[in-house]
Structure formats: C-alpha cells, structure tokens
Amino acid sequence: MTRRVGRANAHTAKQAGMPRIGPLAALHIWLQRHAQVSLESLGRIFSKPVSSLLTISVLGIALALPAGLYLFLVNAQSISEGLDGEARISLFIKENIEETKAHSLAETLNQRNDIAQATLITREQALAEFQQYSGYAEALEALGDNPLPHVIVIRPDASAMQPDAIETLLRSLRADPQVELAQLDLQWVQRLHGMILIARRGALVISALLGLAVLLTVGNTIRLEVQNRREEIIIAKLVGATDGFIRRPFLYSGLWYGLLGSVVSLLLLWLAIGLLAGPVSDLSRLYQSEFTLLRLSLHDTAILLATGAFLGWTGAWVAVAQQLRGMEPR
C-alpha cells in the first residue's frame, strides 16, 4: 500500500511539477493522511448522533447474539468436558451377595486391562452418603432396613472409552452372575455431547446469518452516505482522485461502525452475564459444583472487536464498490 502511494507520488512528481519526496516522508504523509481521514469519518458518525446510535445499536445486537451463543456453548462444553473424564459404569450387586464377595469381585475387576479402577461402595457407605446429601435421612430411617445394594463403581480405561469397547465391557460385566445391573453413566454425557454438537452447528448458521446482517446494515448505511456525498465524489474525481482515495473515508466509516457495534455488543454481553451469574452460581451450588460462568476472555474480546471491524469494513467496501461504478463525472 505504502509502496503504491510512493509510486503515485513519483508519478505526479515527474509530470506535474510536484516535489520529489523520499519513501520515509511519503510513509509519514500516508500515515498522517490515514489518521486524518479516520478521524474525519469518526467525526461524521458523531455529527449525527441519533441515526448513528440506531445503526450502532442494531450492529451491537446483531454481534451480541452470536457472541452470546458462543459463550453459552463454551460454558456448556466446559460442563460436559468436566463430566467426560468421569464416564462411569455402576455395577449393582445382587442383594444376596456378601460384602466380602463383593470385595473380591472388585479386586478381580481391578486386574482387568480395560478397567482403570473399580471401587466398591458398600451398602452401608451408600446409605451414609445418601443420608448426608439427599435430605431423605428421616425417610430412610423410617424405612428401617437398608434398601441399597453394594455398588462397584468402575472407571473404564482410556483405551476402552470408545463406544464399541465400552459395549463389550458392559456385556462381559452383565454376564457375571453376581451382578444385578450394569449401568453406563456415559449415555447421557454422549447425548449432551450430541446436543452441543447440534447447538454448535445451529450457532454457526445463526452467526453466519447475523454476520451477513451486520454486513448489509453497514453496507446500506454507507450506501446512503455515498449517495449523499455524490457531488463531492464527482468533484474529487474531476481533480484527479483515484477510486482508492474516494473509498478511503467510507471504508473508515464502515470500520468505525463495526468497531462501535462490537463495543455495544460487549456491553450487552457484560450486562447479560451480570444478570445470569448470580442464578447460575446458585444452581451449581445445588449440584455441589464449583462451576462458575465463563466470561469472554481477552482473546475472545479481541476477536469480537476485530470481527466487527472487519465486517463493517467489508460491508462498506461492497457498498462503495457497487456505488462508485455508477458515479462518473458528467
């Protein structure tokens, strides 16, 4: 870009009596010019606050929705990933089996290659735990007899985590005559995974559509601005302005709109997270979870700002390119 400006300067210098300038001076002038144009464009946005604010709010909402979805998915994923490593098989032992037998069964299972760990929870332990957490302590006491069986909790080996291997493991466990029931806790995790995958696809589609909305909103705003400044554009062309020169202020306008839109979307997200954080931490406390709502990281914030700026710039580019074609001096 700089090189091109330098060349343009050399071109005019040779032919129209312009002073020859070094590449460093040309770069300085180029930067100066861009700073000036970008500030002018920003000034133009602020000079009509009402309509600009409306446009920027629309952009902010359109950007906040996909960013919010993303945040939701990141949170959902962090929950499901926390559970992933804990894929468990619960082995309910038949009621007539002694505790020592259950112990030795756990020992045997611990020897297997496809099992990382097998832990026995005796019916007494289970009852104690149940009384502590469920709030049914009184009801259980009224029951008198302990209704709970021995349970062996099995953590499959990492190599056995594939659906096929797990299925094989389950079948062999169920075949044991001491076992009443082998239940895989993974199923609902897998379902959650599936749901998140669908939600992620959906979010991608929605994000693309809303991105397009941002593009069109900025494009339309810039299109109107180009039309309003038609006379100015034609005069600039008559005195030798290149398309690049004419595009520049509009591209900066688009950039600013996108950037300001993403700032608004950040504010909206911040507000939404603020409203959700309390209830979410209450809920997670009910699940004995340390889960806290993930917020947008600095990296995500930078990406959101850059995306907004890029979409605004692109929208402006499309609008100006399409408008300028029909704007030749007459």
Partner: peptide, 9 residues
C-alpha cells in the same frame, strides 16, 4: 483538494 489527493504533506 487536489494537493490532498496528490498526497502532499
């Protein structure tokens, strides 16, 4: 305007 277009300081 013509000077700004030509890229003068």
């Amino acid at each position: 305007l013509p000077l700004v277009i030509a890229g003068l300081g």
